[in-house]
């Protein structure tokens, strides 16, 4: 366990804090949970870097999928779930296509996001997306610019989705209510979370 040094100065305290990894930092249950949820052999990662090398997000952000794979292997639950980069995966599945160990790193990220949701660790934009889906059936609902573009292309202004058939929205709401997604999103947003 990391030890406090007591310099009596919070800034110095943080700068010189104990950065050793201790086995007590690991939660072995975390790796098992990730494996169960992701249905992939997350423990078999040998850190070759093919995933990050394939990742369209990595060159444009601080998101490093290989780092999350490593945190999974070591069971560094809090470090993984509290890192906002967790939400930068575009789920393109390039890493899953190329991983030489035949792991699905994308699914590991999805599993970690699910686990983070249990701790109410979800970025606001994701929670707002939940609300949008609940109300319109779309994560990105149609808007006037799109409608104009569609008409120009000879399409109907609204696509044949819940926009065209709003009677199906209650069905979507029923599914989301079952998982209490909307209630949780509303609650976390109201509490002023992330």
């Amino acid at each position: 366990m990391a030890t406090d040094k007591n310099y009596g100065n919070p800034e110095l305290e943080n700068k010189l804090r104990d950065r050793y990894y201790y086995t007590t930092d690991s939660n072995p249950e975390f790796l098992e949970d990730v494996k169960t949820l992701s249905r992939t052999i997350a423990h078999m990662c040998f850190q070759c870097g093919t995933c990050t090398g394939s990742c369209p997000s990595a060159p444009r952000s601080s998101y490093r999928i290989r780092l999350f794979m490593r945190r999974g292997v070591l069971g560094l639950e809090q470090e993984a779930l509290n890192d906002p980069d967790l939400w930068l995966c575009t789920t393109c599945y390039s890493c899953t296509d190329r991983c030489p160990r035949d792991i699905a790193p994308t699914d590991v990220i999805m599993a970690m996001r699910n686990l983070a949701f249990k701790y109410d660790i979800v970025p606001r934009n994701f929670l707002k997306t939940v609300q949008l889906i609940y109300n319109t059936g779309h994560g990105v609902p149609n808007n006037d610019v799109n409608r104009a573009a569609r008409v120009k292309l000879g399409l109907t202004a609204d696509p044949p989705t819940t926009h065209g058939y709003p009677e199906f929205i209650p069905g979507i709401q029923k599914i989301m209510d079952h998982y209490e997604m909307k209630d949780n999103a509303d609650r976390i947003l109201a509490e002023g979370g992330q």
């Binding site: 850190q47 870097g49 995933c51 990050t52 090398g53 990742c55 060159p59 490093r64 290989r66």
Partner: peptide
């Protein structure tokens, strides 16, 4: 060539 320099933690092109 695209890869990650895993020791640097940075994607390379």
């Amino acid at each position: 060539v695209f890869t990650e320099d895993t020791l640097l933690g940075r994607p390379l092109s």
